[in-house]
Amino acid sequence: MKKFWKIGLSAFLAVGLLAACGQEAKDNKPSNEQQTQQETAQVDEATFPMTISDALGKDITLEAPPEKIVSLIPSNTEILFGLGLNDEIVGVTDNDDYPPEAAEKDKVGGMEYDIEKIIALKPDIVFSHESSMSLSEEAIAQLESAGLKVFVVKNAQDFNETYTTIEQLGRATGKLPEAEKIVANMKAKVEEVLSKVKDVEPKKVLVEASDEPDIYTAGNGTFMNAMLEMINAENVAVDGDNWYKIDAEQIIAKNPEVIVVTYHYVPDILTKIPKRAGFDTINAVKNNAIVQVDESTTSRQGPRLAEGLEELAKAIYPEVFK
């Protein structure tokens, strides 16, 4: 019988908002220029054998670039494919939908990890993620007890930390030049977006990550809030921390000028939101400024995140991008 490590149904929303996207903030870990320089310095060399330290401070020694890789979160998968590791990737999760080639890989679980399958794939390294540690700690322990190397990727809180993550994975897989190219392209796109919105009049924005009755929004400390700040948007939910549940009455009182919807599981959600009781008084509803963005590009800490920033900016300031 196969052994599964299960994530309970009650944790599904947390997995969707945090693990799949890697967005939950970590207290007492502010990013700054010095920290970013230190982290970047850790990925300057890409020679084997090497010892790398993961987000938990655990040292992992690699004798050579890994020939078999398993990824346990979509953001890692996107980075690994972006590095050109198509052949080396042997296993991904059920949630991995980009690039299309990910669908061809063996699936190792979604709300539950197939521990025996992961072990059977004989990966040289398994890439997990810090944001899902509360849910995957037991699974990682089982994999490590079976002799597998599990590298826990840092839960990046901003673009600089995302760049460092990409470079770190490039270093660990012998693809540092490819990683540096990805980062350079991302930086160019970010600079292009920021130059277009630098003189805009800030708009009040609410981000919805789920539908009523349990509406979740991005508060202070989330990557989404950092992105809103980058493009000079005012997050009306910044008085709360992390991703938190917000009442319809609170949304009405905050009166956002734009409502950004990051989910697609509710059909016709853009026509349903204006019909909520009392929402006809909200400026976003009055001005038909309820927009839907791609939940993957605007949340996954990988190569497409710069495109996600542009999509978010276009959604909030369409007049600037005409």
Rank of each mutant, 00 (worst) to 15 (best):
E201M: 04
E116T: 06
T47P: 01
D294E: 07
T281A: 10
V190Q: 12
V197H: 04
A19Q: 11
E311M: 11
A313F: 06
N155K: 03
A46R: 06
L194N: 14
E45P: 05
A156R: 02
D27N: 14
V150F: 11
F48A: 04
V236Q: 07
K58S: 12
E191T: 12
R300G: 01
S132R: 03
I7T: 07
K203F: 00
S299C: 08
D294K: 04
K187E: 12
N287V: 00
N283A: 02
A289I: 00
L135P: 00
D114A: 10
V15S: 09
Y317L: 03
K275W: 08
M133K: 02
L176D: 08
I246P: 00
V238Y: 12
M186Q: 08
P65A: 12
E63W: 06
S71F: 14
A14F: 13
F12R: 13
L228S: 07
P256E: 10
V193K: 04
E295C: 11
P30D: 05
H264R: 09
L312P: 02
G22E: 07
A313C: 06
E178Y: 07
L13A: 10
L18N: 14
V70A: 10
E234L: 03
V293C: 13
L72N: 08
K286P: 11
T162I: 14
V153D: 06
T93V: 12
V126K: 04
A141L: 10
I252S: 01
A306I: 03
G84C: 02
I89E: 02
E161R: 10
M111L: 15
D27S: 13
E319W: 04
V108E: 06
L169H: 08
S210Y: 13
T47L: 10
R300H: 09
A226I: 04
Y263M: 07
Y216P: 00
K149Y: 06
I269N: 11
L309A: 04
Q34S: 08
S210W: 15
R300D: 00
A103M: 11
A102D: 05
T298K: 03
Q292W: 12
E78R: 01
V70S: 04
G221K: 04
A46L: 06
K107F: 06
G147I: 07
Q142V: 00
L9C: 07
N185F: 01
D199P: 04
K189G: 00
I246T: 03
K105R: 03
V238R: 10
G84F: 12
V108T: 09
L80N: 05
K29W: 12
F12P: 01
Q38R: 13
I231T: 09
V197K: 03
A25D: 04
T262Q: 15
I79T: 06
G110K: 09
E257R: 05
V200P: 07
G109K: 01
P100K: 09
Y98I: 00
G57P: 07
V200T: 14
S31T: 13
L148R: 11
K314R: 14
N242R: 07
S53C: 08
E307K: 03
H264A: 14
A41R: 09
D239C: 05
P74V: 05
A315D: 11
E311Y: 05
N86D: 15
V291K: 15
N283F: 00
T77Y: 08
A41D: 10
N160T: 08
F81H: 00
Q250M: 12
A248H: 13
E191D: 15
K314H: 05
L206F: 12
A46Y: 08
N220D: 14
Y265R: 09
D94G: 14
A139V: 05
